[in-house]
């Protein structure tokens, strides 16, 4: 039973991380109908920025709490800036191009960013500093649920609540919903669509950076390639839940996280990624609109 609970929590932790990344995919898709292939790379850059800042601060002897806060803010700021810039360079000029063009551009961006980090930093796995200490009150159940898992789950819940608040009640959130429903109409009622798209990229990238920071301190090492797999899996989760739907992305991520966790726990860990990819292929074949997505008919 302990093993089952351990797997359950490990699945929930994974799922929360996927959710943080998947939200970026699903928000961007909801607004401009583009699979932002470079999103995984933004998550990787968030993790790298956090790593660099945290290591520098810890070398200069800052206290742990300051390191966590500064590294977290730095990761979010830089990732958002990257997201904003990438949109301006690679997607904005292609807004009226055929469908395949922005996708190819996004793939190019993803390869470019991976190699940029590889060349500027290193190809080795780097040890990520421990940012989350073992809480004393977690002692009795530490063998089932680690302190890091707890922090990840709590942070994810807080971020989700904040995001829901932004989208439901703020002006920019309303503008986002309007833009995703009908871009032309949104322009007509005076919404600056370019600003809404930039805001979407910034928020999505910020969420990915939080995910990057959390997963890096959970796993304890990073490398330039982590964005690829995480990106694909988060995309799987977004599609599973129904791409474009925010609750769908969270639901899909939790299902994917639990599936992976139980599959590796009870079947075999060699094929962990195969499970995720097979799940993706199966969903797209049988229910391309996802669990909570709406099937749209193409009108001529």
């Amino acid at each position: 039973m302990d093993y089952f609970i351990e797997l359950l929590f490990s699945g929930l932790t994974r799922g929360s991380i996927y959710a943080l990344i998947a939200l970026g995919y699903t928000m961007v898709y909801g607004i401009i109908g583009l699979i932002n292939f470079a999103h995984g790379e933004i998550y990787m850059i968030g993790a790298f920025t956090a790593f660099i800042v945290a290591t520098v601060l810890s070398i200069y002897g800052f206290p742990l709490i300051a390191i966590v806060i500064i590294a977290g803010i730095a990761a979010v700021v830089w990732s958002s800036s990257y997201g904003y810039t990438i949109e301006k360079i690679a997607y904005k000029p292609l807004r009226h191009a055929p469908r395949l063009s922005p996708l190819i551009s996004a793939i190019g961006m993803s390869i470019f960013l991976q190699n940029y980090v590889l060349l500027a930093q290193t190809s080795d796995f780097l040890p990520f500093p421990r940012l989350i200490p073992d809480f004393p009150f977690m002692e009795p159940i530490a063998h089932i649920v680690g302190s890091t898992d707890l922090v990840i789950l709590v942070t994810t819940v807080i971020v989700m609540v904040a995001l829901t608040f932004i989208i439901k009640f703020t002006l920019i959130g309303k503008a986002m919903r309007a833009t995703s429903q009908d871009r032309t109409m949104a322009t007509l009622v005076g919404i600056n669509v370019n600003r809404v798209i930039s805001a979407t990229f910034i928020i999505g990238s910020g969420l990915a950076a939080i995910g990057g920071l959390l997963i890096a301190s959970h796993i304890g090492q990073i490398n330039f390639y982590i964005g690829f797999l995480a990106g694909i899996k988060a995309f799987t989760a977004a599609v599973l839940g129904g791409i474009g739907s925010i609750p769908g992305a969270v639901l899909g991520s939790l299902i994917l996280g639990l599936t992976e966790s139980f599959a590796t726990g009870y079947v075999s860990s060699d094929y962990e990624d195969v499970f995720a990819f097979s799940l993706l292929v199966l969903i797209l074949i049988f229910k391309p609109s996802g669990l909570l997505g709406k099937a749209t008919n193409q009108k001529v």
């Binding site: 360079i89 690679a90 000029p93 292609l94 191009a97 063009s101 922005p102 190819i104 551009s105 793939i107 190019g108 961006m109 993803s110 390869i111 470019f112 960013l113 991976q114 190699n115 940029y116 590889l118 060349l119």
Partner: peptide, 16 residues
């Protein structure tokens, strides 16, 4: 060494 970097940049630049 910069080969893959260039491939990525080529894809973006060509599209734009």
């Amino acid at each position: 060494q910069y080969r893959m970097l260039a491939f990525g940049a080529i894809l973006v630049c060509m599209m734009v």
